[in-house]
């Protein structure tokens, strides 16, 4: 039926693609003038704001809780419960080490813009260099995170140890997975470019990868401040004021 008719039409019409008919109907312009992939990526990043927002909110809710509990509930008698113990953030976090990591990721954002700019100018060689550099810096960041995690394990902070560990590893782990995906993506892009698959017209494809990469860096900028730099309660000095909050938790234990 219709199929065959159209096939014939196509096979025969292959050489008759008129210039005038070229754009008008079968290639509707994007109505906004914004490339579809780019628009998709921005909405994806908007969605990621809620994803990381939820994780960050969880972290912010729990960031002081382990210390508070350990101070305020030390002496609970007869509950049969142990109280969450350290290591606590002030004992494990190394701001200088992470500052270097943050710097690496920051620098990778810089190499990423250069990669996007080079492909825009049609300079594929430069594009390869900058893309590989970006992927490499991302990998260095991941290695840094691996050593940081190992160090924390040695100091006794696992994901089960206390609620700080749980929320810390979850938040930074999800970020790390995003970095990992980005590294794979950029590596694939450079492999494709070595096989001659990237040219000036792939500017948008590269730009979209760049947007993702910058967003990951932005998330780390936020995490660096909220996780590493913002002060934690020591627990030691505070006591009475926290009892109310801590008692609320005890009261929520009837199901034990």
């Amino acid at each position: 039926m219709a199929t065959t008719a159209l096939e014939v039409q196509r096979a025969g019409g292959g050489t008759t693609h008129g210039d005038s008919g070229h754009g008008g109907s079968s290639h509707p312009p994007t109505s906004t003038g914004i490339d579809s992939k780019k628009l998709l990526m921005w909405w994806f990043l908007g969605s990621e704001c809620v994803l990381f927002g939820s994780l960050i909110a969880t972290f912010m809710i729990y960031r002081n809780r382990a210390q508070d509990l350990s101070v305020n509930l030390q002496g609970i008698e007869g509950s049969g419960l142990a109280v969450s113990s350290g290591p606590f953030p002030n004992q494990v976090l190394d701001q200088l080490y992470t500052a270097v990591s943050a710097g690496v990721l920051l620098f990778s954002s810089f190499t990423m813009v250069l990669a996007v700019a080079s492909v825009g100018r049609g300079n594929i060689k430069a594009f390869r260099v900058w893309t590989l550099a970006t992927a490499m810096l991302g990998a260095i960041f991941l290695a840094g995170q691996y050593f940081e995690y190992t160090e924390f394990f040695h100091e006794g902070l696992s994901i089960q140890q206390n609620i700080f560990g749980a929320s810390f590893f979850t938040l930074t782990g999800v970020h790390g997975m995003h970095v990992f995906v980005g590294v794979i993506w950029l590596t694939m892009l450079s492999i494709v470019s070595f096989r001659g698959g990237i040219s000036k017209k792939d500017h948008t494809n590269v730009e979209v990868a760049g947007l993702y990469w910058h967003f990951i860096d932005i998330v780390w900028i936020v995490l660096f401040t909220l996780v590493y730099l913002l002060p934690y309660r020591d627990g030691a000095e505070s006591a009475e004021e926290h009892t109310e909050g801590a008692m609320r938790l005890v009261q929520s234990l009837p199901f034990f």
């Binding site: 927002g53 912010m60 508070d68 309660r233 926290h242 909050g245």
Partner: peptide, 14 residues
């Protein structure tokens, strides 16, 4: 949304 959540859940904290 997240600020409101933290404000509701961590008033005894941060």
């Amino acid at each position: 949304v997240m600020f409101a959540t933290v404000a509701m859940m961590a008033v005894d904290g941060f």
